[in-house]
């Protein structure tokens, strides 16, 4: 049985920019993420992926529409939403002066992981992500790859059922990016629901169970890869993406 862990309906975000005036970053976006799937938001830079994910993670407030995580509304119950969510993005850096162990403990405790089990959970994360040798070192002393691992560990340390990864492989070398993709697949296999954004076609193709193509703040298509292929008569995701984006350009 599959249930919707994340439900997004008519979600919009507009803001005022001094240079551009009123900007509609996200326009009436609708989608659902089912339990245990990797749902991809595929779009070019500036398409509205990050703004959408920030609204779902309660960092930004929607201008209109609704978003729910496990039935909790992002505007009315933001703390409940955050408790059930792990949010990872290139702009969620770690506290440089804390150690990896201190970071994981803080996130587990504040995100209400049971206090009596926190120590064991933190050690489990340290072992799982291979942080043992570096667990006592300050984050600022770690390599980019190690920081990445600590970041993922802090995203999942409170064992949230829903995880959001916003362009997680940006800035990573090939090996670290593959490592990260493998980690995300493992998390899906454990039953986590994963909302994943990227502008890299191969990444979306390899990881996502369903893909939503987003362009200029609107969802242009949303289906599994096979469904998208059938709908567009294109095989490669790159061609499918171009099909939807250019179709929008021609229709205005």
């Amino acid at each position: 049985m599959s249930t919707n862990q994340v439900e997004v309906h008519g979600l919009s975000k507009s803001f005022f920019d001094q240079a551009r005036g009123e900007v509609n970053a996200v326009r009436e976006v609708d989608f659902e993420c089912r339990s245990g799937e990797i749902f991809g938001l595929l779009g070019a830079n500036g398409a509205g992926k990050t703004t959408t994910l920030r609204m779902i993670s309660t960092v930004l407030q929607p201008s209109s529409g609704t978003a729910r995580v496990l039935g909790h509304d992002v505007v009315r119950e933001p703390v409940e939403v955050r408790r059930n969510l792990g949010f990872y993005s290139a702009s969620t850096a770690l506290y440089p002066r804390l150690t990896a162990r201190e970071t994981l403990t803080l996130f587990a405790r504040v995100n209400k992981y049971p206090a009596e089990r926190t120590r064991d959970r933190v050690e489990e994360m340290i072992e799982r992500f291979g942080l043992g040798e570096y667990a006592g070192a300050r984050i600022e002393k770690l390599s980019t790859g190690m920081k990445q691992k600590v970041s993922i560990a802090r995203t999942v340390v409170h064992d949230p059922p829903v995880l959001i990864f916003d362009e997680p492989t940006v800035g990573l070398d090939v090996l670290n990016a593959l490592d990260l993709q493998k980690g995300i697949q493992e998390l899906r296999d454990e039953g986590k629901t994963i909302l994943f954004s990227t502008h890299i076609m191969s990444e979306a193709e390899r990881l996502c169970d369903r893909i939503a193509i987003i362009d200029k703040g609107r969802i242009r298509a949303c289906d599994g890869l096979e469904g998208l292929r059938a709908a567009t008569s294109q095989h490669y995701l790159e061609d499918i993406f171009v099909h939807y984006v250019t179709a929008d350009d021609t229709t205005g």
């Binding site: 993670s57 960092v59 969510l85 702009s91 969620t92 504040v110 409170h158």
Partner: peptide
Amino acid sequence: ERNTWETTSTLATR
């Protein structure tokens, strides 16, 4: 500046 503000604001607290 350190990009940790967004990390902090995703903590499950008010």
